[in-house]
Every structure is written in C-alpha cells, then in structure tokens.
Design a binder for these strands. Structure first.
Lengths: 356, 356
DNA sequence: TTGTAGGCGTTATCAG
DNA sequence: CTGATAACGCCTACAA
C-alpha cells in the first residue's frame, strides 16, 4: 500500500485555493505571474496565502515544469581571492532575479570538475558558468547534456562549449614583460605558484617575450605547485636570488607573490625598483597602496562575472546574445615598482594593454 | 485534459528497471544505497543505467521524499576574505558527502537576510548556516519554520536559534588592547571600517579596555561605513594623525587596514613599532610576512566553517551534538609591529588568548 | 532482499 | 481570464 494520511497542518496550493475560493491553478498562476489573474482574485489569493503561511514547494514546481531556476557555478578555488571578485559579479547580476546560484569548488581538479558537473546535471540547471577551457571530453559531454546556456570564464580558447568571456593570459603576461623590457630590465625572473592552466599560459607569455628579446634563460623561472601566498612570494624570490643573483626584475604570476617579494626585498635591503623591479598580476586592491606602489596587470574580474551572468540570463530569457565570445582585455598598471632605473616616479598610474 | 505524450527519449528509473529486468524500486534503492541490492542485480542495474545514460531527477526525489540534501549558507559578504576561509571549511566538510551547498550573500543587510531565508525555506533545506546573531525576529521565525539543524557562526550570543560556533569579538579586541597596554602604549587609536555588528563589538572591547586603563579618549576612534581595504587603512590613519597626533599605537579592526597603516607609516617615515605600534585583526596570511611582521588576532575561521558543517551533518544523521555552543577562542599573535619601544624583536611569534 | 500501491505538490494542456 | 484533468519521476510504507 501507499502512503497513509495527509498531514493536517500542511499548506499547499489547494488549501490556499480553497480559502480564496478559486481553483488551484489560479493560485499557481498568481504566484508565477500575478498580472495574469484578475485584481479581485489577486487580493483574495494574496490574503489567503498570507493567512495560511503558504510557502511554494520548489521541488514540486521543478518536477511539474521540468525546469529549475538554478545556475550552476564551478570555480577551482575559494582561497584564491581572484575568484571572490568574479563571484561578486555573478551574485550581483543575479541579485533580485528569480535565479539562485549553486556554487561548487573543483579544487583545480578536472576529475572533481566532472563529478560536480554530473551533480549539477541532476538538478536540470537553467544555466552554468564554468572556469577555464580545460574541461575533459567527458566534462564537455555532460555540460552539453545539460542543454542550457553555458559560459566559460577567466580565459579565451579556440573551441567554446557555448559562450565564453575572459582574456588572453599569454598576451597579458607578454605585455607585462614587454613593459619591463621597455624599462631597461634584462634579467627578468618569473615566479609562479600553483601552476594551474592559466598560470601556465602566463609562463608561456613570459617565455615568448623573453625569447623574442633574446633574453630567455630557464634559470630565471622559479615555480611551485603549492598555492600562492605572500610567504611563498618571499621563498620563491629567495630561490631565484640563489639561481640568478644578477636578476634585475621579477614578474610574479600573482599579486600576493609580488607583495611577498617586496617584503623580502625590504628584509634584504634591496631597493625597489632601483635594484629590482617588481610586477604582479591581477591588480588586487593593495598593489596601488604599497610602498613603493606595485605595478600589476589589471584583469576585469568583477565585470567578467557580471557579464557572464548577464549572458546566461539573456540566453535563458530569449534575448539573443550575439557577442558569444567576449575578450575583456587587461591593462598593465604601471607604478613605481617598475620605474626605469634612476627615473622619477610617475605622477599617477599609467596604463598599457587592451580594451581600456 | 492533461499532458499528451510521454517523450520517447526520456530515461527514468522505469526504463533502467525494464532493461535490467528488475522493478523500479530496486533501481531506486541501488542509487541511494547500493548495498541494499543483491550483487547480481547491482551489476545489471549499473550497466543498464550506463547504457541508457540515466541521470536521477533530484526534483522528483525531493518531492517524493519530502526532503532535500541542500544546506543553505548565508554570509554577509563575498568581498571580505574572512569569509572565504570560513567557506573553505564548510565546503571541505561537505566535500564527498551527498549534501550540496546553496550560498547566498546578505550584503550586511538584515532585510536581505530575511528575503534569502524565505527563499531557502522553499527548498526545504536539510540544514542552514547563518552568520552572526543579529537576525530579526521575523528572520528567526523563518529559520525555525525550516525545521532543520541551524548553526550560527562567527560570534557568540545569548540566545542561540539552535547551534552556535564562534568567539567573543569583545574579548578578542580587549585582549589585543591589553597587549598594547602591556607594551607600554598609552594613546591607542581604533580604526574600523564597514562597522558591521562584529566590528562594533570589537570597538566595545576597545572601549572597555581603554576605560579600565583610564585612557579612553573618543578622539582616538576613527571609523567609516565604507568597506575595509588597504587604501582605507591609510586614509583612516591619516585622519587619526590629524585628530590625535600623539597617538603611539593603532588597533585595526581588520588586517587590510593594518597593512594600509604600515604603508602609510612608510610613506610618512614613521618608524614601526618604535613610533607607532600596529595591531590587526584576523591574522590573514600576509601579516606574518610583512616587514616588520604585523601583530594580529588570530581567529579560527577555517575550523569554524568545518565544525559548523560537521555539527549540521551530525545532527541530520542522528549523531547527537552535545556541545551545541562552541567557543573557538582566539590568539593574539605578538609580532614585531607591537614590540615594546626599544626592545628586541622576539625570536618567533608569541601568543596570548583563549583556547590555544 | 524484493516488490506493490499510491501519492508527494505543482504545472502543462486544452476547453471554455 | 479561469478551470478540469493528467501527468512530472521518484519514494514511503507495507507486505512477502
């Protein structure tokens, strides 16, 4: 036999409908689109619902309508505060909309990513935002199966699943190194932590620039699989100094590394930028207020999240998204830490890059 | 009339069951708890499901079972990286479990909080984690109605909704000020941004300590409603210097303010700690590697998230949670920036506080 | 360990 | 603009 008794206290559409003297479907319509119900009934339903303390059941709604208003968001890390800016953009865009966000953390693992994608799929999400372009074939298949708008964020790649927004990490790093070269630096070190795909691409940009300049030397590259941190910046810089004592500039694949390098220089009484120039990546808030102020590559993370979310909503709601691959560019924020030797500090930030 | 035709390509439990030659309920059992199905059928079901590309429908599951495996998490900010540590703990704890997290952002608004709580309620969450103790009466009522385990995190208060984990912000700040007083500081400034309830409580701790010492002076307090940032630290410190030029120490309600104060001191050629001692709050990673290293109050944010999540799971799964209010304490990490005037730096961090 | 019967609360569809 | 009817896909309860 099936279930026995209906709980007495439970409030469903039916109860509200009974009290309001209308049919359940009218109450349903009222909650989804009040304008489709006549004003008189509107009031009756509203007060009945309030009296009974009615709360819609999302599971029933999803089952009956065969869709949800859940947006799945997949990021590789909660620690890396680069993602908090992107997330802020995403949450801000969905703010006040009917969509809710399901956030999951791949920990930089494509297998985790696959697993989480499969989990999302069970929810029949209305849209998905995933990080990067390095999904496995299986992962891509799962996303396709979800049959909903998808945006890949953080970087650009050749074969979008659906939509894409980001910038070229290769170009961004290339621009930063070019800036250092223009400042007269020759022995430019590369410091990288975690070495996720995007940091790898920054390294690629570094190598391209250095090779073109005829200055490439593998001893100038110091990396670690450990996550980025200020302390790690100091360590990597110390390693670099052992391997290449004649280094005259350091590019850091993350800003916290750059801050750590600055502190390490202070500890060692190395003058910045006179003896060593420093450039970071992402332009976190503290870079501009450091002493000396730290040059960095600004990436438009908040806007990336905001627009990714907007693209999803436009697509869901039938507004055609024509620009399906968006290059947000970057800006090299030139500050004191990378000023030409013996040159005066600039009056204000100077920028170079794309899209500014 | 109701719906017409059943889509042909759709794969449900029924289809898997037919292919495997068992009844649907057996397939259902297999997916929820494989051990309750005999090994032979287990294999048949598994391969049938794979062949058909079956994906369980969470909405149907939730509707039929009258419960979900969603944990609602409410935090006030995505920008404040204090919360990324807490979140990391929460996500780590639920990692690999069947629960999924629904994260929402109140933006420090109790009305937003109410709205989001109401939204959670529609999902019939299995548990909820909310920030702080300042919910409105209405907010508390909604949470009660959810009828699931609830943990309030970040601080302790008199009247828990259900469970609670955090520490006393009043005591933590009191301890930090006591440390400065012990170092011989007398004109201790207070710098605070955002001024959310927890920062207010830190201010209370400051006032308590200063009044007891007979050193309270309202001119030493500089606050702003603007969110915390390194740049803001510099501005607030500049304000403080105008209002109280004789200040000999600064307590910053957040670490990024403290970093900003350090930079501002460097800019003004003020010696730290000789002329001005600096103490921060939260002990973010960069505090220990700054030059000079910056004293801060360590708060156990990761553990807070981890344990909050564990408490929820224990409660859901019927493991009795006896310690329903957990004081995680704090530690004053004494570093160079608050060393006694003319004293030598400590060989290593020294700590004072509770629970260490 | 497996199966039977029925309902979970809502919405799509079609008719008025 | 409103209503009747039939699903949506799975799970609880009970029985074997």
């Amino acid at each position: 036999m099936g279930r026995k008794h209906i709980k007495p206290g439970k409030v469903r559409l039916t109860e509200v409908a009974a009290l309001a003297g209308v049919s359940p479907i009218t109450v349903s319509r009222f909650f989804r689109n009040p304008d489709t119900v006549s004003p008189g009934r509107r009031l009756r339903i509203e007060s009945a619902a309030k009296d009974l303390g009615y709360v819609p059941n999302l599971a029933a709604r999803a089952l009956a309508s065969q869709r949800t208003e859940v947006i799945g968001v997949l990021i590789p890390s909660l620690t890396n505060n680069v993602f908090s800016d992107v997330l802020r953009g995403i949450y801000d865009a969905f703010e006040g909309s009917r969509y809710s966000i399901q956030l999951a953390n791949t920990r930089y693992s494509v297998l985790q990513e696959e697993r989480l994608l499969r989990l999302f799929l069970m929810q029949k999400p209305a849209g998905m935002i995933v990080t990067g372009v390095d999904q496995t074939a299986e992962g891509r298949a799962i996303v396709q199966a979800a049959d909903c708008p998808v945006v890949q964020i953080m970087e650009l790649g050749p074969d979008p699943i659906d939509m894409m927004i980001g910038f070229s990490h290769v170009d961004a790093c290339f621009a930063a190194i070019s800036h250092l070269l223009a400042q007269g630096c020759r022995r430019i070190g590369f410091l990288g932590a975690r070495m996720d795909p995007r940091v790898q691409r920054r390294l690629q940009g570094y190598q391209n620039a250095m090779k073109i300049a005829g200055l490439f030397d593998p001893r100038l590259i110091v990396t670690t699989a450990v996550p980025t941190s200020t302390t790690m910046g100091g360590s990597l810089f110390s390693d670099l100094m052992l391997r290449a004592p004649d280094v005259d500039a350091v590019f850091c694949a993350n800003d916290d590394l750059a801050l750590g390098v600055l502190f390490e220089c202070q500890r060692r009484h190395i003058a910045v930028p006179e003896q060593i120039a420093i450039v970071g990546f992402n332009d976190m808030e503290f870079m501009a207020s450091a002493v000396p102020s730290l040059t960095s590559v600004r990436t438009n993370r908040y806007e990336m999240g905001l627009r990714a979310a907007t693209m999803i909503m436009d697509e869901i709601e039938g507004r055609p998204v024509t620009e399906r691959v968006v290059d947000l560019g970057f800006q090299v924020m030139e500050r004191q830490s990378s000023q030409q030797r013996h040159a005066v500090a600039p009056a204000a930030d100077r920028v170079s890059g794309t899209k500014w």
